[in-house]
Design a binder for these strands. Structure first.
Length: 157
DNA sequence: GCCAACGTTGGC
DNA sequence: GCCAACGTTGGC
């Protein structure tokens, strides 16, 4: 999952109560489908900082609540308000994500490019703008291995 | 700040 | 349904 650190960073997530926050504001249908249909409680999340001095994977989190209506779409005061989204038939969805840890050091785009498995990650693809995107199990394991972390949370299942 | 790559919008 | 115009994203 991608976020601009100036907007919401891994540190922000860590300091939330319970280290948990809802991931609202996604207004892209492809990403919406992932939030609504694919992300389940217990799924592992790689937290990526985008549009900043050093774009990188910076931490690990987990999904603690699966897709439910993004209420910020209902509120006209919200930046991502969408009048087309209805309570009885929401257009936009979000999940709750809980902080697990920072990577010992961020995995930069150069780091990713130099790894035989990670060089295939969606986040490196040119023109990629999906704020939520799937990671293969091989990529997940490679990230943890490169960082010297074991999957003690069993998130790869 | 530049620019490429997308997604969305709206006229037709 | 096509397509040009426009806005946004995001690396560099």
């Amino acid at each position: 999952m991608k976020s601009e650190p100036s907007c919401f960073s891994i540190d922000d997530l860590q300091t939330r109560p319970d280290g948990t926050e809802h991931w609202d504001g996604v207004r892209n249908y492809q990403a919406r489908n992932l939030l609504r249909d694919r992300l389940k409680p217990g799924d592992g999340v790689l937290f990526y900082h985008s549009n900043c001095p050093q774009p990188a994977i910076v931490g690990v989190a987990r999904v603690v609540r699966g897709g439910y209506a993004d209420h910020t779409a209902f509120d006209p005061r919200e930046k991502h308000f969408d009048p087309k989204s209805r309570h009885d038939h929401p257009t936009w969805f979000m999940v709750d994500v809980q902080y697990i840890c920072h990577l010992p050091s961020p995995l930069t785009r150069d780091d990713l490019r130099q790894h035989p498995v990670l060089s295939g990650m969606g986040v490196l693809r040119k023109g990629n703008r999906l704020s939520v995107q799937p990671v293969t199990e091989a990529q997940w394991c490679a990230v943890l291995e490169v960082c010297g972390l074991d999957d003690r949370w069993n998130l790869s299942e």
